[in-house]
Design a protein around this nucleic acid. Structure first.
Lengths: 113, 113
DNA sequence: TGACGCCATGTCAGATATGACATATGATCC
DNA sequence: GGATCATATGTCATATCTGACATGGCGTCA
């Protein structure tokens, strides 16, 4: 994704589904954003399932509460690397991540991780 | 992953499989690296399958040949975001990415290596 | 031999992400 | 009300990533 788009995205708070062609996003752009949103949701679910607060998770990640909040909020300032490694630290397997990433698109069994 | 580790990793050129505990990598660290390597391999395969040179791919990605080389080489300086968006631009679907990410680890069908 | 195409590797300025901090909101309890 | 906890949001210095450029290796062809 190019910087110009990312900038507009940041300005708009990237509301994906709704403002797709409004921002002139490519298929690749939206796909990436959707993957990230799915991952952030997954992280929040995992954290809650483990009964952790954002502060506690931040400790495990060796980060800060504010960053955890941004991760879960799908903030554009959060990289995929951070999302994925956070999930891994919370115990997600590659298969779990794969399921999450595949997203809504043709999922098999009941819902995902 | 922490910076200290990334630094050592960079220094070592991150040879994953072999120097795992030598660098004191956690499970999450190695899992992330393996995912990235799988993605970079996948990118190279896709590019070749489409008969593109690194220069041509760089044009599509609006990047440079050297970065494409680093992406495919699994260089530590390449983020997951770049890997994924590159693959998406080459036409990979979320499902394709999911398959790649799931990696060797317990794939269904006939047994994998 | 030289010229050319393809890929690898090093470097660097500028762009982006990160952790940390401050601060704000809302909920709950006393 | 006040205190406490969980979460959100803004800012900022520093760390990291990115594209671009230079250069070198390697094979091929004339």
């Amino acid at each position: 994704m190019r910087k110009s788009k990312r900038t507009r995205l940041k300005a708009a708070g990237w509301v994906v589904g709704s403002v797709k062609e409004f921002l002139g996003l490519s298929e690749a752009d939206t796909a990436l954003i959707e993957m990230k949103l799915a991952l952030s949701q997954s992280l929040r679910d995992r954290r809650k399932k483990q009964g952790l607060s954002q502060v506690q998770l931040a400790e495990r990640l060796q980060s800060s509460q504010s960053r955890v909040a941004k991760i879960e909020a799908g903030d554009p300032s959060v990289s995929m690397d951070l999302l994925v490694s956070s999930l891994l630290i919370l115990g997600a397997s590659s298969a779990d991540l794969a399921k999450t990433i595949r997203g809504g698109e043709k999922r098999k069994g009941p819902h995902a991780a």
